[in-house]
């Protein structure tokens, strides 16, 4: 069967399409949901860094110093900062889901507060952790 140009089909005969993401007005819960999936995927890739670090430490001084130098560079620190934020935001998302799994926090005010709160808590904790890491190193 030949594919017909969508525009050549009369409007009333076209198949209904579900609206895609850009149609919707952004809400805190929508942003938190998307961020949860994006940070999950980012952490998936970031686990490569953890495995690389552990393998380097299990190797010799040369491999450890080489990996430490990469992680200690400006770009490396930037990536690790992003990893920290992704890890904490995903952790906050998990807590949010646990609250919802318990059947609590579903009213409009609570669910927005939970969503915005998870971003805020992850941001504050990330900065605090990095301040601590700079103090103790």
């Amino acid at each position: 069967m030949a594919e017909a140009e969508p525009s050549s089909i009369p409007l009333e005969q076209r198949r209904p399409l579900s609206p895609h993401m850009q149609i919707y007005k952004w809400s805190p819960t929508m942003a938190a949901s998307i961020a949860h999936r994006v940070t999950g995927a980012a952490l998936y890739a970031g686990t490569l860094l953890l495995a690389a670090y552990l393998l380097a430490a299990a190797g010799d001084a040369h491999s450890f110093n080489f990996t430490s130098a990469i992680f200690g560079s400006f770009l490396g620190q930037l990536v690790l900062f992003g990893y920290t934020f992704a890890l904490l935001l995903h952790l906050m998302g998990g807590l949010r889901h646990a609250i919802w799994d318990a059947g609590k926090g579903f009213d409009a005010e609570s669910r927005d507060r939970l969503a915005i709160g998870s971003f805020a808590a992850a941001g504050v904790l990330t900065v605090l952790l990095w301040i601590v890491s700079f103090i103790i190193r």
């Binding site: 686990t47 953890l50 495995a51 552990l54 393998l55 430490a57 299990a58």
Partner: peptide, 13 residues
């Protein structure tokens, strides 16, 4: 692969 490599590294350490 990632799990095996990480576990190997920690055990070796």
């Amino acid at each position: 692969v990632l799990g095996a490599a990480s576990v190997y590294a920690v055990l070796r350490l």
